[in-house]
Computed example of a mutant assay.
Amino acid sequence: MKNIKFKALSVGIACCLMSACGVQNGNNATTVSGLSTAAFDTTINNKPVKLYTLSNNNGMEVCITNFGGRIVSLVVPDKNGKQTDVVLGYDNIAQYADSVNSPSDFGAAIGRYANRINKGKLNIDGKDIQLPINNYGHCLHGGPSGWQYQVYDAKQLNDTTLQLTILSKDGDNNFPGNVKASVTYTLKSNNSLDIAYRATTDKETVINMTNHSYFNLNGDPSKDVENCILYINADKYTPSDSTFMTTGEIAKVDNTPMDFRKPTAIGKNVNNFSFDQIKNAMGIDHNWCLNTYKNGKGDDTKVAASLYSPKTGIMLEVYTNEPGIQVYTGNFLNGKVKGKKGIAYNKHASCCLETQKYPDTPNKKDWPTANLKPGEEYYSHCVFKFSIK
C-alpha cells in the first residue's frame, strides 16, 4: 500500500553486498522461482536473516524471508502446468533492507497495526498516545519501523511449515505493551497457503496483522493486472478522504464502482475517476466490510474474495475470520522500482488482498475492536487458496 517513506535500518553491509551479488557458497541453492538463497543470507540488526522454502507435491513453492516475514516468491502451476511466480518482490535482501532507495511492504507480515491510524492518535485505557506519522499525516503499518522492517525469529517445523515469532517491546513506535507475536505459514496439499497470526500483551494495546503480498496472477509483472477478475463478498465498504483515511462512514456498494459482488475485471472500475473514491486513491485502495463476518465472528470457511487471471487460468480464493479486506491495486507503483529479474513495476502491476480490521478501528468505537488486553490472545486467520479455473 502506498508511497511510504521509511528511515534506513542498520544492516550488515558487507554481508548484504555479497548476498546481492549472488556469491556462491556451500549453503547456496536456487529455488524453483529462480532465487539464490545466498542472496538472502545475512545479518540485520545483529540477527540472522535467511530465505526459507516451503513446497508440496503439486509443484507449489513459497519462499519466505524472516526479514519482515515477507513472502518473496509464490510459485503455482498455471493452466498449462507452467510454474508461475505470482507475487512481486526483490531477489536479494539488500533491496528489501534498503528502506531509503527501495522502500516497500512487498509480501510482508505487517504489525503492530496494519493500515492507517488517524493522525497517529490513540486513546487506550484513558491514556492519549501519539504514534509516529509516516504517511499523509497518519501512522501507517505500525510506523516507520513497523514489523515489516524488523527480523522475526524463524523456525522451520517441516517442509511445509514455517513459524516466525517477534517480541515487540513496550514503546515500539510508541505502541504500549510488550507484545509477543507469531506468524505461521503452512503450505497445504490442496495448494492453499494458510497464515495464522497470534499475539499476547502485558498491557492493553492494539493489534491488527496482515500479509501484504502484491499478486500478479498473470505471471508477468511488467504488465498490469487490469484483465484480472476480482470478486469481493461484501455489500458495504468504508469510504476514505483525500489522505486515505476512513471517514467513519460505512457505505453500500450498490450502483458504484466499488461493487465487486459479481466477478468483474479490475480494469472496468480501477480507472473510473468520475467516482471520487477511485479518483482520490488513483485506483482502488479501500477496505470492504465482508459479508463473511457477522455478529462479531468471521467465517473462514466461506470465500471472502477471489482473483482470477484469464491469461494463466490461475484462481486465488481468500478466506479469513477478519471483518475486512483492504484491496490495493498498486496505484503508487510507477516503474521506478525494479524487482525480481530487474523488472520494473508499473502502476496497477498487482492487486493486494489484505485481510484485517477496518482502518483506524481504534478511533471508530462502533467498528470491530482491535484492542488486546493482558490474558487475551489475538488470533487472525487468512488462507490463500490457489487452483486452475
Rank of each mutant, 00 (worst) to 15 (best):
F6P: 07
A8W: 12
C16P: 04
C21S: 10
G22L: 00
G22M: 01
G22E: 00
N27M: 15
N27S: 11
T31F: 04
T31P: 03
S33P: 13
D41P: 10
N45E: 13
V49L: 08
S55I: 02
N56M: 13
N57G: 14
T65Y: 02
S73K: 12
G81Q: 11
G81R: 05
L88N: 05
G89K: 02
G89R: 01
D91M: 07
A94K: 07
A94Q: 14
D98T: 13
I110N: 09
Y113F: 12
N115K: 01
I117W: 00
L122I: 14
N123V: 08
K127C: 02
D128K: 04
Q130M: 13
L131F: 10
I133Q: 08
G143F: 03
P144N: 12
Q163C: 14
G171H: 05
D172A: 11
D172N: 10
D172W: 04
F175W: 07
G177L: 06
V179D: 04
S182T: 06
T184Y: 12
S192E: 03
A196I: 15
R198I: 05
N208T: 13
S213D: 04
Y214L: 01
N216G: 03
L217I: 08
K223H: 10
D224R: 01
N227A: 12
C228D: 15
I229H: 05
A251Q: 03
P257Y: 00
F260N: 02
T264M: 08
N271F: 08
N272Q: 07
S274A: 03
Q277N: 08
Q277Y: 05
G283I: 08
D285W: 01
W288F: 14
T292H: 02
T292Q: 02
K294L: 13
D300I: 03
A304M: 06
A305F: 12
L307A: 05
S309M: 06
P310K: 09
V318D: 00
Y319M: 06
Y319Q: 10
G324L: 15
G324M: 09
V327R: 00
G335V: 06
G339S: 11
C351I: 12
D360I: 15
N363M: 06
T369G: 02
A370R: 04
K373Y: 14
E376F: 11
F384I: 15
F386C: 07
K389I: 08
